[in-house]
Computed example of a mutant assay.
Amino acid sequence: MHEDSKMSGLKFLLVTALNALITIVELLGGIFSGSLALLSDAFHNLGDSASVVLAYVASRIGLKNSDPSKTFGYRRAEIIAAFINAIFLIVVSAFLVIESIRRLLNPAPVDGGIMLVVAIVGTLANFVSAWLLSRGAKSNLNLKATYLHILSDALSSFGIIIGAIIIQIWQIDIIDPIVTILVSVYIVWETWPVLKEAINILMQAAPNLDFEAMKADMLKEPGVVNVHHIHAWQIDENRIMFSAHINLNDQLLSDVEPIYRHLESLLQKKYHVDHVTLQAEVFRGKSNELFTRDQHDI
Rank of each mutant, 00 (worst) to 15 (best):
A81G: 07
V117R: 04
A164H: 11
H231G: 11
A58I: 07
E99I: 03
E99W: 03
D41H: 09
E264Q: 12
E281D: 12
H229S: 13
V128I: 15
E78G: 15
K11G: 06
L39M: 15
H149G: 12
Q251V: 12
T123Q: 09
V121Y: 04
S152K: 03
V128C: 05
V52H: 02
N106L: 13
I80Q: 02
L253A: 12
N65I: 03
T146M: 11
L124N: 04
L124H: 04
H229W: 02
S139Q: 06
T277S: 12
M203S: 14
N238P: 01
N288D: 13
V25E: 01
V225K: 15
N19D: 07
L116V: 01
E281M: 13
A244K: 01
S51I: 06
H272M: 09
S287W: 05
A232R: 10
I84S: 12
V15K: 00
G34W: 01
P207S: 09
Q234H: 06
A81N: 15
V57T: 13
G47Y: 03
A137M: 03
E3R: 10
S100G: 13
H229A: 14
K220E: 15
V97F: 03
V224L: 02
K220C: 00
A154S: 12
S152F: 08
N19Y: 07
E221W: 06
F283I: 12
L105H: 09
T180E: 02
I172P: 08
M203H: 05
A58G: 03
W233K: 05
A216Q: 13
G73Q: 01
L290F: 10
I24D: 03
M1P: 11
L151W: 01
G62Y: 04
Q268L: 01
S59T: 11
P177K: 13
F242R: 01
L141A: 03
P222L: 04
V273L: 06
F72S: 07
I160S: 06
I61D: 11
I31T: 11
G73T: 05
L266V: 03
E221C: 12
I162E: 06
W192E: 04
F32G: 00
M115F: 08
P207F: 14
V57Y: 14
A232G: 06
L46R: 01
R135S: 15
S287M: 11
D41I: 07
S66P: 07
L195G: 03
G113N: 15
A213C: 09
